[in-house]
Structure formats: structure tokens, C-alpha cells
Design a protein around this nucleic acid. Structure first.
Length: 256
DNA sequence: CGCCGGAAGC
DNA sequence: CGCTTCCGGC
């Protein structure tokens, strides 16, 4: 099955705002990877939202996830413990937090949304027998040999879920973390698309169209739009819109 | 076992 | 720089 994974990210930039070169990235960030898989129903046995509007998700099959991550990053020794460690690195950057008491539960607090740099499309294609990862700048494609073949998606026995309302849903939970950083709000959008192609005979969607996101450079997006872009969902329910805004209140942050 | 964060390496 | 690797600790 083809597993088109849309990853919507901010544009890239280097951390130094002023003299940044057009940062050319060579691989996908972990948060993009996670986000992309979360947006893909095909990956629901591995990782899925439990509360998408608040960015809460759960790792259902960490071993498989780690294996995939290792493939994407070309780290054959990747395992779930290292993956967890990598995710923990996001805590102090305000990107992720643990949903405590919930096994495998994490929450996206913000997305590193950056202002500078150039458009970049990250194309990941997990095709069974393809070449080593090609890392380029634009239209880069990472190729893997392994894809997700897990079916051992254990149904988790929860969903009676969070009792207390989620704290910090107001606009000021974007506590500027201790380390100072460039807090610029970005207006640009960039879409990285990742296609994970699971098995033979399926064509990677990304292969057909080397589209890169023509980012709407100069348009100022509302937080809702931003989040809609990020989450690739429609905002219909007014209540959900509220939640969107809550989650989105973090989105404009540039972490670091 | 799950999860944490320091430290060093790449 | 963004992890990756290893580890002691809870």
C-alpha cells in the first residue's frame, strides 16, 4: 500500500536569523517524521492521534516506528530507546511533552516554524528495493528498503482518556522558555511531503510529482489557517476551532 | 518495563 | 545542529 504522508512544516532557516544561508537540509526531522506518520491512516497501527486537535498522540508500536525511523535516517541500529531519547530532546524545546501516565502518549506543543531559507520538499519513499538514500536539497528523496509491515497493532485499551481538561490551553502556555531565541512569527508555509511506499508494485506518489510547495510567501496566515495547513484538516466544528487555536497558539513559535 | 536527562559522539 | 549512543537512576 502506498502510504502518502504529508508533512507540513515551516520553512527552513538556520538559527542565526540574520546571515542565514539557504539552509539545505539533508534529512527529515524527527518531528516531521512523526507528524507525517500521524497524518497517515495507514500508519495508524504504529502511531496515531488520540486527540489530534490538541496534538496528543500515542505510539502503538514503538519498535516498528523506530525501525522505520532508522530506515529513514539510515541508522540501522535505531531502536525504540534511542527514538525515545530523541523525542525527549524535544521537551526542552517546547515541541513535545509527555502525556504522563499514558504509555506511549505524547503531545505536540508546537512546531518549529521557521522563517528563512528556501522551499524544501522532503520526499521520502520507502520502496522495497531501491537505492541508497539520496539526499539532496530540494526534492530530496530518501529511499528505504523496509517499510511498515506491522499488523500487530494492538488496540489500546483506553479512550476513556483524559479526565482533567488539558492545562495550558490558553495563549500564554507558550511560555517563552528559559533560553532566549528568536521569537518571530512566520508567515510562510512550506510543505514537505513524504511518501512511504510499502510494498512492491506500488508507486510512490512522490515519485510522480516532484512538486514542491510553492509556499505562500507573503501571505499572513491566521493561526487557524496555519493549523489547518499543518493539520491538513478542515475546521468545521466551532468547538474544534477553539481547540485548534489553542494548539495553534504555539505554532507560530520559533523554537530556538 | 517505561521513562528521564546528562554526557559525549557524530 | 539534531539527533545517536550509552548509561545511571527512578
Amino acid at each position: 500500500m502506498t502510504m502518502p504522508v504529508h508533512i507540513h512544516t515551516g520553512r527552513l532557516s538556520t538559527k542565526r536569523s540574520k546571515y542565514s544561508r539557504p539552509s539545505t537540509r539533508t534529512s527529515v526531522y524527527l518531528w516531521e517524521f512523526l507528524f507525517g506518520l500521524l497524518e497517515d491512516d495507514e500508519c495508524a497501527s504504529v502511531i496515531s492521534w488520540t486527540n489530534k486537535l490538541e496534538g496528543i498522540f500515542i505510539l502503538k508500536n514503538a519498535n516498528e516506528l523506530a525501525k522505520l525511523w532508522g530506515t529513514v535516517k539510515n541508522k540501522p541500529n535505531m531502536d525504540k530507546y534511542k527514538l525515545f531519547r530523541a523525542m525527549r530532546n524535544y521537551y526542552n524545546r517546547g515541541i513535545l511533552k509527555k502525556v504522563r501516565g499514558r504509555k506511549g502518549g505524547y503531545q505536540f506543543l508546537s512546531i518549529p516554524y521557521e522563517t528563512e531559507g528556501c522551499d524544501l520538499t522532503v520526499v521520502t519513499s520507502c520502496e522495497p528495493c531501491s537505492k541508497p538514500p539520496l539526499l539532496g536539497t530540494l526534492d530530496q528523496s530518501l529511499t528505504n528498503s523496509n517499510a511498515i509491515k506491522s499488523d500487530c497493532s494492538e488496540r489500546l485499551t483506553d479512550d476513556r482518556e483524559r479526565t482533567a481538561g488539558n492545562p495550558g490551553t490558553t495563549a500564554d502556555n507558550r511560555k517563552s522558555t528559559e533560553n532566549n531565541r528568536e521569537t518571530t512569527v512566520d508567515n510562510c508555509e512550506q510543505i514537505a511531503e513524504v511518501s512511504l511506499d510499502e510494498s512492491n508494485g506500488y508507486r510512490s506518489r512522490a515519485a510522480s510529482s516532484p512538486k514542491y510547495s510553492v509556499s505562500s510567501n507573503s501571505s499572513i496566515k491566521s493561526l487557524e489557517e496555519l493549523l489547518a495547513d499543518l493539520m491538513n484538516n478542515d475546521i468545521t466544528d466551532p468547538m474544534e476551532t477553539t481547540k485548534n487555536i489553542n494548539f495553534a497558539s504555539n505554532v507560530g513559535n520559533i523554537i530556538r
